[in-house]
Design a binder for these strands. Structure first.
Lengths: 215, 215
DNA sequence: TGTACATCAGTGAACGCGCGTTCACTGATGTAC
DNA sequence: TGTACATCAGTGAACGCGCGTTCACTGATGTAC
């Protein structure tokens, strides 16, 4: 009899194998990028034959979709945890950067080159909004006495995306700038575009965000 | 007899065919991304058999390397042209954004997800520095009376990358911030991360750069 | 100008490869009486 | 508790495919005397 609310042994086993498949999939992505992800290669690593994977994932695409969802989920959880332990914007940035640096290809799976034609599953935008919600909370806590810019005015009339969040335009603006400035530095760092110039991205990010708070 | 300094008919023909191959390669990349680029498919479009391509490119990798180099070259030329016709930082940003939007996958070939293990040819960093040089020129023209930040101090001791350029640390800083802020907004826009929120990236970029000049 | 030769673009057949995916099957694990 | 049956994880063979790349070749274009 299955423990209601719990897991039968078979379910537990399935979950374990699924997790192991994903683990090796991430390893492969970290090593050679998503494009090189091969079901047969994963199967070999897991120690079973290729077709056996189809017990766990309907197709290569479904596996990748699951990985993308997990990446979003992990990022959202990380950000929320940091916020709950009282991180300010700079602390948040540091946490996100560490998350990204621990597995650059996972970051790029979310924020990297889009594959023309491929559309991420709908629920990822929901998870993505979780991140934005945290940003809005933290940005709302910052005192705001700054001159309104043309983009602020633009935001006053285009704020449906912050659905239900009662933030002022300047708060939305700050959250957006935080996001784009951090991503700007971080993605260039991860892609190796600072190689050769001996720049400390952490300092640059801190500076970019301090300027954001001061402006 | 070959016209010295000119091109023999054969050379001219070779150059034409090479150009046509590249054209179709770009089309394919725009349609399905680099990962999907196939020599046989290109050959079919050009109207010749697969092996014939090897008269023009030694391998798939060499073709891609050439495309990457061309992308860098095109960006550098675009930026330099804009600077020569007197564009300021905001104008420069607009030009770069248009360049990127005209072929997003070309932008991502330079600034997108890196393929682990792959290293761009050395000369691309040289071309990349051409872009930085223009940025430094334009940034140097901006009057600079602003408080020094920790990152400015960091730059005073880490400025070898701006090899030979006599700019002050604040100028280097401005050029870097221009680059990272623009890339932050632009790459998110091109990857479709603003879809749904009806944001005008042009306004956001202008705002980000005005803040940069005011700070 | 005409002929002999070298260069070189392009072809078609073939190679080996690894891919995602299907199918019919075996054998172990869990369920019901 | 023991037996009969259903569920389901995993296998091995096979499918068709398109890939990058090589090779020996044909035929046209250019070069030299």
């Amino acid at each position: 009899m299955t423990d209601p609310g719990g897991q039968s042994p078979r379910e537990r086993y399935r979950a374990q194998v699924r997790a192991e498949i994903k683990r090796h999939a991430w390893e492969q992505i970290a090593t050679a990028g998503v494009a090189a992800l091969s079901l047969n290669a994963i199967a070999k690593q897991v120690g079973m034959s290729g077709p056996a994977l189809y017990r766990y994932f309907a197709s290569r695409d479904e596996l990748i979709t699951t990985l993308i969802r997990d990446a979003y989920r992990s990022l959202a959880d990380t950000v929320r945890a940091a916020s709950h332990s009282g991180a300010d914007l700079i602390g948040l940035a540091r946490v996100i950067r560490e998350w990204a640096r621990s597995d650059p290809q996972r970051y790029f799976l979310i924020y990297g080159t889009p594959v023309p034609g491929y559309h991420a599953p709908d629920d990822t935008t929901k998870i993505s909004f979780e991140v934005m919600t945290v940003l809005l909370e933290v940005c709302g806590a910052v005192s705001a006495d700054k001159p309104a810019t043309p983009f602020d005015a633009h935001l006053e009339t285009h704020r449906e995306w912050a659905f239900g969040h009662p933030a002022e335009a300047t708060t939305l603006h700050r959250a957006l700038s935080f996001w784009t400035r951090l991503h700007g530095v971080l993605s260039l760092e991860l892609a190796g575009h600072f190689t050769g110039m001996e720049i400390d991205p952490d300092l640059l990010i801190a500076d970019e965000l301090n300027a954001l708070l001061a402006q």
